[in-house]
Structures are given as C-alpha cells and as structure tokens.
Amino acid sequence: MSKDQKIVIIDYKVGNLSSIANMLKKVGQRSLISDKPEDIETADKLILPGVGAFDYGITQLNNSGLSSVLNKKACEEKIPFLGICLGAQLLTQSSEEGVLPGLGWFQAKTVKFKFDPTETKLKIPHMGWTDVTIEHPSPLTIGLEEEARFYFVHSFHFTTEHKEEILLKSVYGYEFVSALHRDNIFAVQFHPEKSHKFGLQVMKNFVDI
C-alpha cells in the first residue's frame, strides 16, 4: 500500500535516479524525481542519490540553490532524509576527493581507501557485495540483523570520531564506516536500490519511518 506521503528523489544531475524510484515502487511507494525547490519544499521525506565527484556534486547543489532548501528541510524541519553513495558523502564536512566543504550535517569526513601495497592486492574502487554490522539500533536497519549484504561502488569512505553517529560498519581491507545516522538523517555508502531484498528492506524501512 502506498502511504500518503510525498517522497522526493532529488535530481541534481549526477546520474541515474530511476533505479531508486523503481525500488520504491516495488515496496508500493510512489515517489517524485525533481530538481524543483518547490517540490522539495513540500516533501515529507527526501532522498539524495548521486554518483560522481564530490566537488561537482556540492557545486550542483549550491548553484541550483538546493543546498539551503535541504538544510532547512533536514536540519530545521527535521524530515526523514536519506543520502545514498555520493549523496551520503555530501552530508559530511569534507572529502579527500575535493576541496569544497560538504553540507556538514555529520561530524564526519570522507576519506580515500588507503592500503599498504605490500600487504594487499585489493583494488580501488571497492566494487561488489559486502556485509554490514549494525552499530546502533535505528528505524532504517530494522530486519537487517542477520547476514545483510549490500552492493558498494566507491573509492572514498566515511570516517568519524563521533561513535554515536556510526550506524553500520563494513570491511574492505580494513573496517570502515558504511552508514551514518543522526536523528532524522541517514547516510548510506552502498546502493540499496541495487541490493536485492536487503536494499528493499532499507527502502521499506525509510518509507515506514
């Protein structure tokens, strides 16, 4: 059953958004893909997706005037907000990929995977399915307690000293933070829209918040 709520997938011209709408459709939820501030102003929930470079993404948000609208919706109105992949990294303070500041909603930074080449042959980006461990209970992670795995494609990952913001951890060469959570805001590094029943559960949980 489609809940009577307005979920907007923010279109800031950084990649494919139809997979997210398709996954929401599978859980019975209609959504709107939009780049219009007036649609985002009236949303009940927001999803910020994105694939690509950090500075390009944040510039797209700043130049389109969306940054201030997002700040208002997420930080003042406190509506449920989900960042995915680049859209998640943009919620941190900064990224080693770029020079521009992020939205800074989390006391976290985005850093590049660093391996000792004498110890590992792991390639960057980390591309593939990886397990997650839940660091604190949240409405987004209900039902994911056992053997949940997600599809990742990324060269950069979150890091934070604020343990209370860490939602999920994963291992690729070493343990890294794969999701952040504070109040109404969630940031996931992986792609729930491409992660079978596990991603479906995440999207369903987000719809049900």
């Binding site: 599809y151 491409k194 991603g199």
Partner: peptide, 8 residues
C-alpha cells in the same frame, strides 16, 4: 531488463 534488476 533494468526494471527487473534489483542488482547491478
């Protein structure tokens, strides 16, 4: 095809 794929 894409509409049926909930994986990459």
């Amino acid at each position: 095809a894409a509409g049926e794929c909930f994986m990459p």
